[in-house]
Every structure is written in structure tokens, then in C-alpha cells.
């Protein structure tokens, strides 16, 4: 008696649900269309195009001194990749970016975390005011920030240099070994507030019962910070680190702007700059083929680095 009824009801239920599900799916996809379209147009298609281009070089086939006035796309197989991988300029660029990342990212993350902890503690009143203040540099576009700092670094007009001169110091922010530090300073100034917000959000998501329990057990503020807050923001730290590593590998704004003040920053200072200047033709080999190859190799390196970091982080968390 009961079995067929149940089966019938089940069948009816499935039919009903599937109609609702379909409708919902339709609506869902409608909402997805704008995203998918844009994603396809500005992300997927250019990447495929770049990969396609990276197998070509543009050469004049007309012969003679000026080459007949047209460039032809010549399929060169993996020659562009071979050039990138064997290019000294490319690897010194990667080296600079690597040094930069190793110095800048941990420094900024620690600073951001410290600020967030301070903000989340009971010491600071008027949190929203401070939050805005620290976040403000992030609201300034990277290029503008770099321009401001170029003036602040300038030997002849910088107030910082003038201040240092009071103490008999003569800092040269564009000296060969210092210039990377000067760039790191700009990035840190811009992004510390942003990362602080990530940490602050994570800190404020921690249930306050934990603090109460800890206080009843006799923990002081410092212990709460170290034993409860810090372990609970690990996820946020991973996110901030990943974003920062990916961001610093694409180092571009700072060196590009500082180049006007310091021609010692070459056109291939970072891989990003090298890719741009290769496509413009101010580096040789020139053109979109080699430029795409540089971009692809750099993306692979960034991907490997980010994946390695995520894996290591997970391993550390598990143990």
C-alpha cells in the first residue's frame, strides 16, 4: 500500500523539483552571462591569443636594407621561449623581483598584522578613524603614488633628504643597491593598509566567547593575542601572502615611473617591463611574439611559486 504511493510522490516530487531547478538554473545563468562574456573577452581570449602569438616572430621578408615595407608573421616554433629561458636580462629581472619579494612581502605582512592586532586590541579607541587613515594610501593609484615618491626621493628637492642632512646624512635613494629598497618602500606604504584590513576582518570574525573564556582562565591581553588571535588569522595570512607574492612578481608601476628619475633602471628591470618594452620594440628581439613568450614564462613562474607557497603553508598547518 505504502510503497507505490511513496514512489508516486517521489516521482512527482522529482518532476516538480526539476522544473524549479531548471528555472533557477536559467536565472542563475542569466546572471552569469555578463561575467562569463567579459571573462571570455578580456581574460580567456587574450591568453589564448598570447599563447598563439608566442610561436611567431615578425620579420621583413622583402630583403634589402629596409625589407620591402611589410613584416610577415613567421612561425618559429619554440624559438621565442628558447630566447626567454636563455636570456640573461630576463633572469636578472626575475632575480630582482625575487629579492624584492623576499624583502618586501614579509615586512609588509608583519607590519599589517601588527597594525591589525593593535587596532583589534582594547588600546586603540576610534578604530574607524585609524582604519581609514591606514587604508588611505591604497586609494591613491599606484602610478600617482610612485610619482609622489619620486619627488620625495629627489636629491635636490626632497624634504626627507633635507631632514636627513640636519643629522649629517646624505641618503641617495636612487643608488644602485638602494633603488630596490626605495621601490619596496612605495609598495609597502601603499599596500600595508589594504592587508591590514584583511587581517582586521579576520580578527573581528573570531568569536568573543574565546576571549572571555581565556580571561576567566587567567590569560592576559598579550597571551590572548598570541595564543588565540594569531592562530585564528592564519587563513587570512595565507591569502594576504598569496596576493602579495602575485602582486610583487608583476612589479611594474614603481620601476616604470622611477625610470624617468633614474635611467639606471633599465628597460628590462623587471620581467613585466621587459615584456612591455619588447612589444614596443625598444628591446631586441622585438615584437609581440617574444613579448608574449616573456609574459607566459613569467606567469608559469608565478604560478609555480604561488602553488609551492600554498602547499608548504598547508603542510605546516597540518603538522
Amino acid at each position: 500500500m505504502t510503497t507505490p504511493t511513496r514512489a508516486a510522490m517521489k516521482g512527482r516530487g522529482v518532476a516538480k523539483r526539476s522544473e524549479a531547478v531548471k528555472r533557477e538554473e536559467r536565472t542563475g545563468w542569466t546572471f552569469m552571462v555578463p561575467f562569463c562574456l567579459l571573462f571570455l573577452i578580456v581574460f580567456v581570449v587574450p591568453i589564448i591569443w598570447a599563447i598563439y602569438q608566442s610561436f611567431f616572430q615578425q620579420v621583413a621578408t622583402g630583403g634589402g636594407a629596409y625589407g620591402g615595407g611589410t613584416l610577415e608573421n613567421k612561425f618559429v616554433g619554440l624559438a621565442n621561449f628558447q630566447y626567454v629561458i636563455t636570456s640573461k636580462a630576463f633572469w636578472s629581472g626575475i632575480g630582482r623581483v625575487f629579492i624584492y619579494t623576499v624583502i618586501q612581502v614579509p615586512l609588509m605582512i608583519i607590519l599589517a598584522l601588527a597594525l591589525a592586532m593593535l587596532m583589534d586590541s582594547f588600546i586603540v579607541k576610534h578604530v574607524s578613524g585609524f582604519r581609514l587613515l591606514y587604508f588611505l594610501p591604497y586609494a591613491i593609484p599606484g602610478v600617482v603614488a610612485s610619482i609622489i615618491w619620486v619627488f620625495l626621493y629627489n636629491q635636490q628637492i626632497s624634504p626627507i633628504v633635507k631632514f636627513c642632512e640636519l643629522f649629517g646624512l646624505h641618503p641617495d635613494f636612487f643608488a644602485n643597491n638602494v633603488v630596490i629598497g626605495s621601490m619596496a618602500n612605495i609598495t609597502t606604504w601603499t599596500f600595508t593598509g589594504y592587508n591590514m584590513l584583511i587581517f582586521l576582518a579576520a580578527l573581528q570574525a573570531i568569536p568573543h566567547d574565546l576571549y572571555e573564556a581565556a580571561r576567566i582562565d587567567g590569560a592576559n591581553g598579550w597571551q590572548i593575542a598570541m595564543k588565540i588571535k594569531l592562530p585564528n588569522v592564519r587563513g587570512a595570512a595565507l591569502l594576504a601572502m598569496l596576493l602579495s607574492i602575485v602582486g610583487t612578481i608583476q612589479l611594474f608601476n614603481e620601476p616604470q615611473v622611477m625610470q624617468t628619475a633614474d635611467p639606471g633602471i633599465s628597460d628590462s628591470f623587471t620581467p613585466m617591463m621587459m615584456a612591455l618594452n619588447t612589444s614596443r620594440g625598444s628591446l631586441t628581439p622585438k615584437g609581440d611574439g617574444p613579448a608574449s613568450a616573456i609574459a607566459i614564462v613569467m606567469a608559469l613562474i608565478a604560478g609555480v611559486l604561488a602553488a609551492t607557497y600554498a602547499l608548504v603553508e598547508r603542510k605546516v598547518n597540518e603538522s
Binding site: D262, P263, G264, D267, R280, G281, S282, L283, T284
Partner: peptide
């Protein structure tokens, strides 16, 4: 020559080394 922009870039790089005595 065609491609002079790359020559100018290379010269700038070398010139900045000359300016700093390197």
C-alpha cells in the same frame, strides 16, 4: 636604421652606468 629605438635603449642603459662611474 630600422630598429633604432632598441639601440637608443641600449645606449641609455650604458650611459647611466657611465654616469655612475660603473
Amino acid at each position: 636604421i630600422p630598429g633604432f629605438s632598441a639601440v637608443a635603449t641600449a645606449m641609455t642603459e650604458a650611459a647611466s652606468k657611465a654616469a655612475s662611474g660603473k
